[in-house]
Design a protein around this nucleic acid. Sequence first.
DNA 1: TTCCAGGCGTATC
DNA 2: GATACGCATGGA
Length: 289
Amino acid sequence: MNYKVVGEDIVIIQSDFDLDETLDCGQAFRWERIDKDSEDADLLLNIDFDKAYKGFRLNTQLLISQKKINENSDESQITLHNTTESDFLGIWLNYFDLETDYSLLKKEFSSDKTMCRACEFAPGIRMLKQDKWEALCSFIISQNNNIPRIKGIISRMCEHYKGFPSYEQLAEETVESLAFLRAGFRAKYLIDAAQRLSIGELDLDDISSMDLEAARKSLMTIKGVGPKVAECALLYGMYRTDAFPVDVWIKRVMEEYYPNGLPECVKGKEGIAQQYLFHYIRNLERADI
DNA sequence: TTCCAGGCGTATC
DNA sequence: GATACGCATGGA
């Protein structure tokens, strides 16, 4: 991985990486776009950028900006602001999956017509390698919920605890004490997950090393974790790319494009394919209407 | 106002 | 094992 340390910033030249497509495609809920007229615009004074986001992985904050190099190139200059080389190498390099060749991946996927369209529709999607606990929590909150409200609940949670709460912290709570979250019926599920982890009955590191079926089963012993949430915890929190979350949108994709199942070219990487398809079908329908 | 959102637990058959 | 229904909340 080629990178430059420039003062307090890390600068990389990267293809297949668009901040909107990666940070606002429903896989993570703690990234906020900073526009030039937003209240945080002063964070980016004197910085030349096309797009910028601020957000967190657990309790490590990052400001990241993107500037397209030129019209003919797929490459962008990506700058990670006010960070350190050690955080870059220890956290963000992995989080943004920067050592995976997405050009090659998309080329493989594109032997299927629908996948080809989905990849061309949002060529800058990358899978985020999120924290296990953060992803589990986030997708428990996601059930029967919409993305703006998921973000709102997680944002209230992080504000309340001055950061993303540990499962030990959440294990101390009750449905009543979590009322401020306005998470509805999901509060009791968060508490169950936190308590099971806290007393050591379940261990996310153990689960991440199990075979897929055993890992699913283990996660689904948590109240409020069914097939969909388990699959999301595995894919987004444990980078199990063969996990394939099926929500209402992916169900539509399967019925419309893949009545006989997924194509061979996504085998072992169904979860990554799912991310392109999810973004494609959601925005396609929005554009059609 | 009604509908619905990156589902799941429970009851019932 | 399949299917039906309720669930908290708030944006559209």
